[in-house]
Computed example of a mutant assay.
Amino acid sequence: MAEVIYNSPNRLKVGRGLPVRVNLSFGVEKPTATSREREKVARILARELRPDLLMDLSVHKTAPEPWVHIRNIFDGPIGILPHYLLFSDTHGLCEDSLLERIKSVTSSGINFITVHCSPTHQLMELARQKRKTPVTSRGGSIVIRDMLINRRSENIYSKMFDEICDVAQQTGTVVNLGTAFRSASVADGLDEVVKEELIIQTEYIDRARSKGIQIVLEGPGHIPLGQLTEYWQLIEPLNVSPMPLGPIVTDRFPVGDHISSSINVAYLMSLSQGGIINAITAVEHQGGVPSFHHTFAGLQAALIAAQAASLNYCQDAFHEEQVIADRRADRQSCVLDSASAGCTRCEKICPLIHSNYPSG
């Protein structure tokens, strides 16, 4: 897959053969939530286990926006969805305002943006006919609603795509190609709608590449483990870094979404041998805002999945495992921070203490 270099302070690289990266999202949904989100992200960034990228998914306007504050304490790439704060229930989206916002944020600290170029009236109708839940993407549904409000024959991002590419080229911005019709449940999975949207997305990947734009593909939301190989076979020829939104492997355990996602995404990233994982919280489908503890647990699960996948192909990732193996051998304890051999759990029958058996 083509390597992506973010124009962020740390110049993060993503691509085939590189360690899998992890993105963590945050966002403000009401006026009183600003300090909560700032403090939550600051507490996470103060820990040893940190995300590689951040996304501000705020749907409530603040001054300054949360990502502006976070930029002061985070040197990795930060992204947004430009249309989140511009949408009106009565007027939809305005092309001039959207383009101006993209120019403003990408010249003042935002390194990647997610745009939804694939919604069409034909794809919407296919989703209505074939699915129980036609659309689950929040960003994609905004673009669809704008199409209906303003009676557009072509969605706003599709219409503006060349102008967006011009801005991205000037600012070194990475473009995330959003998946508006990712499945809302495992029961739909890799259905006809997902495959049709991929055909449309391929056109935009080619257009972006022709203009020298770095592009990332946001991927499936809910998909069975057994369909991931087929999904990878569909996107592998696109030569693009995947950034899956999940994917959730089962919907039966709604307070374990971070575990469900980590199972699936570790396998997908081992196939792709590079890309970006989105940290998913345990309460993704519980209707509330994740707490610090839920968010950090989701980050931990994503980091574990990233390491598990990276071990499949990346020597740097395996080196970290070798260091742990050496520590256990040297200290004769599986307790990594132990100052003495063994531990109180095993006491005198500890196998690490008595592992040097005589030969013969």
Rank of each mutant, 00 (worst) to 15 (best):
G27D: 02
V28P: 06
V28M: 04
E29H: 03
K30C: 01
P31W: 15
A33M: 13
A33W: 14
S35T: 05
R36L: 09
R38A: 11
R38N: 07
E39T: 09
A42H: 07
I44N: 02
L45M: 12
A46L: 02
R47Q: 08
E48G: 04
R50W: 14
R50F: 10
D56K: 00
S58G: 13
V59M: 05
H60M: 10
K61F: 10
K61Y: 08
A63H: 08
A63D: 15
P64W: 04
P64L: 07
W67L: 11
V68W: 11
V68A: 09
I73R: 00
F74Y: 00
D75A: 10
D75P: 04
G76I: 04
I78M: 09
G79P: 13
I80P: 13
L81G: 14
H83Y: 08
Y84P: 06
L86D: 01
F87K: 14
H91T: 11
L93C: 03
S97I: 02
S97N: 11
L99F: 07
L99S: 06
E100S: 14
R101A: 02
I102L: 05
S104F: 12
G109W: 14
I110F: 02
T114P: 00
C117T: 13
C117F: 10
P119I: 02
T120N: 08
Q122L: 15
Q122I: 13
L123T: 04
L123I: 03
E125K: 15
E125Q: 14
L126Q: 10
K130L: 15
